[in-house]
């Protein structure tokens, strides 16, 4: 279970541009390093990060608003932020996928007033 730090305002005015900041705990192990015992540390990377916005009145899988492919040499505990124009009330769905079957999902509600 990965720990995450998500900073999104809980409410915004219609048309307002908000900043969505997301930090996730992950080692982003490159596969090139060795442990103190000398054995190669197996590669363990986050591969893809997506953020979707699901409007409350539409439902479904929602609209893809931000995505990133992650590679080796991206720092551990990757932090990614983006700006979003708030139009309707709904929720952000953040999802990460990575090596060794890593998969994590978080949701945050955004209320538009």
């Amino acid at each position: 279970m990965a720990r995450t730090l998500i900073t999104v305002p809980s409410s915004a005015r219609r048309g307002e541009i908000i900043e969505v900041r997301v930090l996730i705990q992950h080692p982003m192990e490159t596969g090139y390093r060795r442990s103190s015992e000398g054995s190669i540390l197996p590669r363990n990377l986050l591969r893809r990060y997506t953020a979707r916005f699901v409007a409350a009145d539409a439902g479904g899988a929602g609209e893809l608003v931000f995505a990133a492919d992650l590679h080796a040499a991206i720092a551990a505990n990757p932090y990614l932020s983006f700006n979003y124009r708030a139009t309707t009330t709904g929720k952000f769905v953040f999802a990460w996928e990575g090596d060794e079957g890593f998969s994590h999902r978080e949701e945050t509600v955004l209320r538009v007033v």
Partner: peptide, 12 residues
């Protein structure tokens, strides 16, 4: 605090 990776440990 929203960028500081140490806050992940604080949360734990």
């Amino acid at each position: 605090d929203s960028q500081n990776p140490a806050m992940l440990w604080v949360k734990e």
